[in-house]
Design a protein around this nucleic acid. Structure first.
Lengths: 148, 148
DNA sequence: CTTGGCTCATTAGCTAGGCTAACTACTGTG
DNA sequence: CACAGTAGTTAGCCTAGCTAATGAGCCAAG
């Protein structure tokens, strides 16, 4: 490690700029590709988190989605209206509620997930194999950063 | 090129999934880092586009931001209230309006831009040099994809 | 075993951001 | 000059986010 800390900081800032630009633009493009179904992006995101976690309380889901509890109440309300999420009482603590995706929620999720990836997958398929490899490596690192 | 088209498509879909996950999460984190100033994310984004383009009509700005004209009317209205953007009449076409960042708009932009990158830069500075190189390479590819 | 403080979820009420439909002002062409 | 099209805005709607306040339930200290 011979580079100075400040040099590292400088290159990190430069990289942050390009990376954020790319991410912001990509995100917009991917969001644009949302099909005209009944689900909004936030709803789909919450459904996804629920799906991945199996089951969560509203508070936990709000934390995962980085949203305040009242906001999550609304979102879950919509999902429940659509029959995609069900509430069940907590076994021991009667204040809490357990949220889980219903069968309909799971299939809907799968459909949207596919549609959401379609545009990006199409773009990526046009890259060279080397480029895709680079992106695969980067994706891993980015996931680690995003969770850290 | 020995891999079949379908294989490429399959790996592209897999990659799209991981990549989108990473991007979505990162985007949320970066958005979270928005300082408590007066500017919302949409406003800052519009200001940025205006800044980069120099000057635009509302319609052009709406197209760049991928938003409908009435939405842009609102956003620009807020920016104007804050004195960050100014309207000037179009020299030849009196239907049109020219939007440009004011001096205050430019300095505000620079401040927010910095703050917005801070969290991400900090995270990136903790990576190894190899990892940053990987990300730099990926960022270029991603920018190309996002524009394509 | 009760009381007071905490936590969970929700409700109420606000702002911003997004949309479509409709309107006004203007351009430009037949 | 009339009229079809374009630029911008206005009106009216919905979602998403927030804070503050409320109600229900838990739990620990007396």
């Amino acid at each position: 490690m011979e580079r100075s800390v400040t040099a590292e900081r400088a290159s990190a800032e430069e990289l942050a700029k390009t990376l954020r630009d790319a991410i912001t633009r990509l995100n917009r493009r991917v969001r644009q590709a949302r099909p005209v179904g009944d689900l909004t992006f936030s709803q789909l995101s919450a459904l996804t988190s629920l799906q991945l976690a199996g089951a969560l309380t509203p508070r936990e889901l709000a934390d995962v989605e980085r949203v305040q509890p009242p906001t999550m109440t609304k979102i879950v309300g919509k999902l429940e209206e659509h029959g995609l999420v069900a509430r069940t009482p907590h076994p021991t603590d009667r204040r809490q509620v357990i949220l889980a995706a219903t069968e309909a929620g799971r299939t809907t999720y799968a459909q949207f997930e596919r549609a959401r990836n379609e545009w990006l997958a199409g773009q990526l398929a046009q890259l060279s194999r080397e480029e895709r490899d680079s992106l695969a490596r980067a994706a891993e690192i980015l996931q680690r950063v995003a969770r850290g």
